[in-house]
Simulated scan of single mutants.
Amino acid sequence: MLVNWIDLVAKVMAGLGGLGFFIAAFSYRQQVRIRQAEWLKSLFEKFFENTTYKEVRSWLDYGVLHERLNVGDPVVQRQNEEKFTDFLNFFEFIGVLHFRGHLPLEQVWDVFDYYLGKIGTDMDCREWIDKYGFEKLKGLLARA
């Protein structure tokens, strides 16, 4: 009789342990999703709400990137190149986050598809990416 109780207690404990494992796994997955949403929100704010990338976004929107990167004044050209490099570095960072498993590709494209598409089709962007080694961004574009 005592053996039956011990077996019953062992089975209940195993069941509770299994249940605990599934609860922990579910909780972990929820935390990962929350973290991804926080990353995405932060990236959205930096890209669309701050003015840091606004000028370069407009260059792509209005098709004047080539002219801005090839201005006659060397000082202005260098400033524009720095702004454009910062812009591409933003997307390189997104590529790093994606390839390290912090942001799924679907989420990245849900928010940044328009500009990733612009970057992927603009010849100046592609040349700059190749010339200056934006490998994670290149990989991100290749997965589109």
Rank of each mutant, 00 (worst) to 15 (best):
residue 35 R to I: 08
residue 26 F to H: 10
residue 119 I to A: 09
residue 131 K to N: 13
residue 123 M to P: 01
residue 68 R to L: 06
residue 141 L to Q: 00
residue 73 D to F: 03
residue 37 A to M: 10
residue 4 N to V: 13
residue 83 K to N: 05
residue 97 L to R: 02
residue 68 R to I: 01
residue 7 D to P: 04
residue 110 D to M: 04
residue 112 F to I: 05
residue 18 G to M: 05
residue 33 R to F: 07
residue 2 L to C: 04
residue 19 L to H: 09
residue 7 D to A: 15
residue 7 D to M: 15
residue 92 E to M: 09
residue 6 I to Y: 15
residue 48 F to N: 05
residue 106 E to H: 11
residue 46 K to F: 08
residue 7 D to Y: 12
residue 22 F to Y: 08
residue 66 H to F: 08
residue 121 T to C: 00
residue 53 Y to M: 00
residue 91 F to M: 06
residue 142 A to Y: 11
residue 104 P to T: 11
residue 143 R to Q: 14
residue 98 H to P: 00
residue 132 Y to D: 12
residue 63 G to V: 10
residue 49 E to H: 02
residue 137 L to Q: 01
residue 37 A to L: 05
residue 81 E to S: 10
residue 134 F to W: 01
residue 95 G to M: 07
residue 64 V to E: 02
residue 116 L to N: 07
residue 10 A to C: 08
residue 10 A to Q: 13
residue 120 G to M: 09
residue 108 V to M: 09
residue 120 G to Y: 04
residue 95 G to P: 10
residue 55 E to M: 02
residue 132 Y to P: 08
residue 89 N to E: 08
residue 25 A to G: 00
residue 25 A to S: 10
residue 57 R to K: 14
residue 39 W to N: 03
residue 27 S to R: 15
residue 26 F to E: 09
residue 79 Q to I: 10
residue 41 K to H: 09
residue 66 H to L: 05
residue 25 A to Y: 07
residue 14 A to C: 07
residue 113 D to Q: 13
residue 128 W to G: 01
residue 15 G to M: 09
residue 24 A to S: 14
residue 12 V to H: 12
residue 11 K to P: 00
residue 123 M to H: 07
residue 43 L to C: 01
residue 105 L to P: 00
residue 72 G to A: 05
residue 69 L to C: 06
residue 70 N to Y: 10
